Lab assay of single mutants.
Amino acid sequence: SEFQINEQVLASWSDSRFYPAKVTAVNKDGTYTVKFYDGVVQTVKHIHVKA
């Protein structure tokens, strides 16, 4: 599913667990740039983002 900029989502971290994050960019290659609550910004594949 498509997510929008500033949408609150759950994004997987390197430990494969999902954490609350905010979408900061929707990228043309189908990835999302997300910002976790601790301030870390990461680009993740769409399969690693869920509502």
Rank of each mutant, 00 (worst) to 15 (best):
L10E: 07
W13F: 13
W13H: 13
Q42Y: 08
K28F: 10
Q42I: 15
I5S: 03
T31S: 10
W13C: 15
W13M: 13
L10S: 02
G30I: 00
A21I: 06
S12V: 11
Y32H: 03
S1V: 14
K50P: 06
K28T: 12
A51R: 13
A11F: 02
P20L: 07
A11Y: 01
N6G: 15
A25N: 07
K28V: 10
Q8G: 07
R17P: 12
E2M: 11
R17G: 13
V44Q: 02
K28R: 10
K35M: 15
T31F: 05
T24R: 02
D29W: 00
A51N: 08
V49H: 04
H48C: 14
E7D: 15
F3W: 07
V44N: 02
V49S: 10
T31W: 08
P20K: 03
H46L: 12
D38N: 15
F18E: 03
T43W: 04
K28D: 14
G30P: 02
I47G: 12
F18T: 03
K45C: 12
Q42T: 13
V44Y: 01
T24G: 01
P20E: 05
K35T: 13
N27R: 05
D29T: 00
G39T: 05
A51I: 09
A51F: 07
E7I: 09
Y37C: 14
D29K: 00
H46D: 13
K28I: 11
F36A: 01
S16E: 12
Y37I: 11
D15Y: 01
Y19I: 08
A11G: 03
F18C: 13
S12G: 09
G30Q: 01
F3A: 04
G30C: 07
F3K: 03
K28H: 12
A11R: 00
A51S: 11
K28C: 08
K50L: 12
L10P: 00
E7A: 05
V26Y: 05
Q42G: 11
Y37H: 10
E7P: 00
D38Y: 08
Y37N: 11
S16K: 10
E2V: 11
K45G: 12
S14I: 14
T43Q: 08
E7M: 10
F18R: 00
D15M: 00
N6W: 09
S1T: 12
L10K: 01
D15W: 00
V34H: 00
Q4N: 10
F3Q: 03
K45H: 12
F36Y: 05
T24I: 15
T31C: 06
Q42W: 10
Y32E: 03
A25L: 06
V41E: 11
K45P: 13
T24C: 13
G39H: 04
K35W: 08
V9Y: 03
T33P: 01
V26D: 04
T24K: 07
F3P: 04
Q42M: 14
K22P: 01
Y19T: 03
V40Y: 10
T43G: 02
A11P: 02
E2L: 11
F36G: 01
T24P: 00
I47E: 14
V34M: 01
D15K: 00
V41H: 06
Y32V: 12
H46W: 09
V49Q: 07
A11S: 03
K50E: 05
S14G: 15
H48S: 08
Q8M: 14
N27G: 06
Q4D: 08
N6A: 07
A21H: 02
P20G: 03
A21M: 03
K22T: 15
R17K: 13
V44K: 03
E7F: 07
D38H: 08
F18W: 15
Q8A: 11
V44W: 06
F36C: 08
D38G: 07
